[in-house]
Design a protein around this nucleic acid. Structure first.
Lengths: 349, 349
DNA sequence: TTGTAAGCGTTATCAC
DNA sequence: GTGATAACGCTTACAA
């Protein structure tokens, strides 16, 4: 990884026949510089293609105007949309976004956070695969720059804000909707209850049942890590069982395509044979025939909010006191749900 | 953006009762350090949560082991998949990936590249919105670190590799397939011919027509910037025209959902009323009913290749000579194409 | 208005 | 083995 000598401020200064200090002042407009000299310096900079070395600048006490974002999976479109929104907002404030991918591996999370810190990013936006991991317990409290944590429930050190999506209400509304249609055997596919989204969704699912006086068949709650192939076989198994559900609530973005494949390959018609509620606002959900009823939330707004909260700390317009915000979900009815088939709907477990 | 004093190597040294040099040597295993002292130092580092300052390290001559990636749109799932693959490969080589979003704006491209350079990234992976822009002509040749450019056709300075997707063959195969089914009025939706993908797709489209002795109706070639709403109205217009096409080839990822929406809202059945060929390997394409015939390519492999080419330069295992690689596409037949309706198929323009 | 020099945190090169 | 020390490229008092 050898590199030829890079152009430095000294090269520019020599070429322009001035001192390094003058070049610096000219670039930063930090003090009056003779207009003629200013132009001459700018010309040299242009001609040489000089780019100041951020490290030297930072070492000298400048901030990096950079925010580090850690997501679990860049290939998840939801994350892409989120990051785009974050980046938009940060860019407007003159900050750059740096992204790292954790694949939900604690080791990767640790590495990414360490790298961000070494590079002295001004702030962090993080998610974790496990709320009880050592990274969360040991590393997080040590971070000296502002942090926004997304959709997790963890203890917040100073300068650490939390945005949680209201998955409970989302799951509650979805479940209630199906119960009101007459469904009594409803399957739930969800991420593990060890993290906020899974925990809340299961809670909402139970709450709706309880309120309707319906009983939850525990075997119909399926915990899945976000991965398509698993969801496919899981869905296959569910619909092939002895007393299959009349409806499925699939609250995992990556899972949904697996479930739809499974239903399709089993020649089950939606909603005639089975009702389906999905998640998010993807092409799949909107353009499926029939369009799929979903629990969604405004991801760009979520991204803007995360950026906003971070910026308010970077500006110093906020106390160190941790903040915690609940971000609303929305239940969108489309054509994928209907009343359960006669003779099955009342067959309770 | 004030920050409390960060822990430095001096703090560690003082706490451990040694000199900064010894701490440095202990951390980097660069020279023998008394085992007892080594342990003591490591303990202090652990206790204080010390993270070495990358800027100081870099200033001292270290490389950053970082690669900058510039994509046009992070919310495009294809880009997410690509970046994930790049990141995987780079991570395996001990490099970190930094991502920036350009939205295809030249200004943003310029800013991102400038920032990457200031931060002295070791290499760059880039796309550009316009092959003739000033960024490409002026900035690119000046970059002193290795560059891989994706899916564009530009002059390559030293150390600059190019990976181009073979869109021409993809479009050719798609068009040929439809012509062989008997279609004579085929619409093509594609990005502008000012960039490689658009140019090549149009070329493939024409080549297939020419080979079949069919005439291209220029009005059926629709140039679009990648954006859903535009594709929607464009598709509406196409199918609402006097002599509408019997098939649509939609070679833009973001466009496809617009086209599908348009067809669906016009109650046109695929493939009975119109044949459709899409692009990529998304949920939409695979799970649509019927599944959509597409031109796809192996994006993770593309990402790995990009990372690989960059790494081979960073390792110094390659000459400075620019390389140029053609990446193959694959034509995947599914159920969205059939013979055109009688009485229309022969109605040539 | 401009030049000079100190210092940012780290590592490599010397002496010890 | 370990401790001083110089150097990396830049900004910023301070001096001129």
């Amino acid at each position: 990884m050898a590199k030829g000598k890079r152009i430095t401020i000294i090269d520019v200064a020599r070429e322009a026949g001035v001192s390094a200090g003058t070049v610096s002042r000219a670039m930063n407009n930090s003090a009056k510089v003779n207009p003629t000299i200013h132009r001459r310096i700018m010309n040299v900079i242009e001609r040489l293609g000089y780019e100041p070395n951020s490290f030297a600048q930072n070492l000298r006490g400048q901030v990096m105007r950079t925010v580090g974002c850690l997501v679990s999976d860049l290939s998840n479109p939801l994350h892409g949309v989120f990051l785009t929104a974050v980046e938009q907002r940060l860019h407007a404030a003159g900050l750059m976004m740096v992204v790292a991918n954790s694949h939900n591996l604690e080791q990767r999370e640790r590495e990414a956070i360490s790298l961000f810190r070494r590079r002295r990013v001004d702030g962090l936006i993080l998610t974790f695969g496990d709320e009880r991991s050592e990274v969360v317990r040991q590393v997080l409290p040590r971070i000296d720059s502002p942090v926004v944590i997304l959709d997790r429930d963890v203890a917040q050190p100073k300068q650490c804000d939390l945005i949680q999506v209201d998955h409970r209400t989302g799951a509650y509304q979805a479940t209630k909707h199906l119960l009101e249609l007459g469904h009594r055997r409803i399957a739930l596919l969800t991420p593990p209850p060890t993290i906020w989204p899974g925990r809340e969704r299961i809670a909402g699912f139970r709450a709706a049942h309880e309120q309707a006086g319906a009983k939850v068949d525990e075997k119909l709650i399926r915990i899945l890590d976000a991965a398509t192939p698993l969801a496919y076989s899981e869905a296959k198994e569910i619909i092939g069982a002895n007393s299959p559900p009349t409806a499925i609530i699939c609250l995992g973005t990556q899972m949904l395509s697996g479930v739809v494949s499974a239903l399709s390959s089993a020649f089950m018609k939606i909603p005639e044979d089975i009702s389906l509620i999905g998640i998010g606002d993807t092409d799949l959900v909107r353009l499926h025939s029939p369009p799929i009823t979903t629990v969604r939330w405004d991801i760009p707004a979520l991204g803007r909010m995360a950026a906003e909260m971070l910026l308010s700390r970077l500006d110093g317009t906020t106390t160190a006191e941790p903040r915690r915000v609940m971000f609303p979900t929305e239940f969108v009815q489309r054509a994928s749900c209907t009343q359960p088939r006669r003779g099955k709907s009342t067959t309770s477990a």
